[in-house]
């Protein structure tokens, strides 16, 4: 600015920003600190108990023999499984839709809207609708929902128990994946703690329905920002469409893919409402996730210390994803 800010303007700007900063300092940072402290206490039951217990809660969750440890291991397994499949589905479907919509189609805004509108809907609504669609029915009484459709079009083999399927596909040590893991020194991963609960598929479908359109929007914006001349030049050089995408478009879209992974990834790590409305963590704990476990442990079972520990671990996992991203962005902006 040509004229230096006057002192009073400086003061006013900081004064006006101060309430927000103070509110966030308390409601985000101090609260996180307090949650961390609670996780180190013995607080169980209605009345707070701040007796220091060290890492007791964490030890129980990671190394204990009890059900809370078993359940927490399941949570982590599900979080990884869900995130992995959800990301793959969302990114690939979103990308394909973006490419299709980008072909100068007629009624583009209609298609865009149809793919994007689920984003505006609550996860609770999504859960209610998809639970109804994916209700499997009983083999003896008759199929309903999507199974009924599959039956009608002769695709019986695709019928599934969906969200009521309790089976977990483990990576066993003697499976091909297990053997590869063994060879690269990660043999410990091939255990019954690692695997994919089939019931998660229903959640992946619902979440992908809700957020793949959003991914499409991100990619579409990216595609639109790639100058046509670049693609045209490649075509002139004799590249076919596939090669254009492989060598020009996809590399240029990498920052978008990174943003999408971060945004979808942190949503998926925090997923809560969808599980509540669709499966409520069942069958057994086949679809339990840390965010849900935290809530139930804290507010239903009133085990505050343990709930706080789960929250801290969840925050840590999200932070591992987010902080490098924020740092990278800040640095990129400073250089601009």
């Amino acid at each position: 600015m040509s004229r230096k800010p006057r002192n009073w303007e400086r003061a006013v700007s900081i004064l006006l920003l101060a309430p927000s900063i103070l509110a966030l300092a308390i409601f985000v940072y101090a609260f996180i600190g307090w949650t961390g402290y609670v996780s180190l206490t013995r607080w169980e039951g209605a009345a707070p108990d701040f007796t220091f217990a060290g890492l007791h809660s964490y030890q129980r969750l990671f190394l204990g023999q009890g059900t809370d440890a078993i359940r927490f291991h399941i949570d982590l397994r599900n979080m990884v499984g869900f995130t992995l499949f959800f990301l793959i589905a969302c990114l690939s479907i979103g990308f394909v839709l973006a490419v299709l919509v980008d072909q100068r189609v007629r009624a583009e805004s209609f298609f865009r809207s149809v793919f994007l509108f689920p984003m505006a809907v609550s996860f609770i609504v999504t859960g209610v609708a998809w639970r109804w669609i994916l209700t499997p029915g009983d083999p003896a009484i008759g199929a309903v929902g999507i199974n009924l459709l599959l039956e009608k079009i002769g695709l019986d083999s695709l019928k599934s128990l969906w969200f009521t399927d309790p089976t977990v596909k483990f990576i066993t040590p003697d499976s091909p994946v297990g053997q590869i893991l063994n060879q690269i020194g990660l043999g410990f991963l091939a255990s019954s703690d690692v695997g994919y609960a089939m019931a998660l598929t229903a959640l992946v479908i619902a979440a992908t329905w809700q957020l793949s359109g959003y991914t499409m929007a991100l990619y579409l914006a990216g595609l639109r920002s790639i100058p046509d001349e670049l693609r045209e030049a490649a075509r002139m050089d004799g590249a076919n469409e596939l090669q254009v995408y492989r060598h020009i478009v996809i590399p240029l879209l990498q920052p978008i893919t990174l943003s999408a992974v971060i945004i979808l990834g942190h949503i998926s790590l925090k997923i809560y409402d969808l599980v509540v409305s669709m499966t409520g963590s069942g069958p057994g704990f086949a679809t339990d996730v840390p965010a849900l476990n935290m809530w139930r442990t804290t507010f239903d079972a009133t085990l505050f210390a343990q709930g706080a520990a789960i929250a801290v671990i969840l925050l840590f996992l999200v932070a591992v994803l987010i902080i490098p991203y924020l740092a990278y962005n800040t640095r990129a902006e400073a250089q601009r």
Partner: peptide, 23 residues
């Protein structure tokens, strides 16, 4: 409540799907 709604309850729910008696 802690025993009934967490320890005992979770063990039974887990067992109903896993069927692992020893665990």
């Amino acid at each position: 409540p802690k025993w009934a709604t967490k320890g005992y309850a979770d063990a039974v729910v887990l067992f109903a799907t896993s069927g692992d008696v020893a665990k």
